[in-house]
Amino acid sequence: MKVIKEKHPLIMRWTHWVNFPVLTIMIWSGMLIYWANDEYSVTLFGHTFFRFFPDWYYNLLNIPHRLSEGMAFHFLFMWFFTLNGFFYIIYSIISGEWHYLLPNKHSFKEAWLVVLHDLHIRKTAPPQGKYNAAQRIAYTSIVIMGLGSVITGLAVYKPVQFYYLTWLCGGYHFARILHFALTIGYVFFFLVHIFQVIMAGWNNFRAVITGFEVENEQPKPAIETNNDNE
């Protein structure tokens, strides 16, 4: 029979859906800023494979000559990005939700099994709680990346007043590279995330809006075996 199973707490859903548009605006305004000194590329042995970014891309998104506007948007939305992120982290710690999110000692081995399962190489997936091992690693990484963006961002924003952050990030240049690389990381995360959400189906997606999942529960056997090794 169908049962309603509570999955995602309201604050998780709220911070998730605040973060999505805010991060989008941060990436967009960041591109407006980056354009003014677009020096990064993928170059190996003197051959440039890809330039961040090609002209057609800039023109398509109407990026050129908007540095001051980009800075103005970036320095407003950084507040929402940071506060929303901290709110989520503090909530996760206080509520104990981090138990479901942080990788544990089995996660790294299991994540590989999850990948094999997702690629249809392996038939069974390892047992999981709210998040599977691969999700634990991915979602914990994305939170750490968010923190990284705040720290590298401050290191580039105020390299004199926050000189210790700039030092921590390996200097002004490296801080700017990290800040950029993290952004590329978000884009990759987003692509994989969207793909996985589509593959996981409606029940899973709905839970991030409604908070619950619907499960078909078998009538319980008289003797319960507990093999939850979380």
Partner: peptide, 27 residues
């Protein structure tokens, strides 16, 4: 030359960081 609300935010943000962090001894 800035959107009015963004200019307000820029000014407030700058004052925040100045009060938080500006120090003459930060060389």
């Amino acid at each position: 030359g800035a959107h009015a609300p963004l200019r307000k935010a820029l000014n407030k943000t700058e004052i925040f960081f100045r009060r938080l962090a500006f120090n003459e001894s930060h060389l």
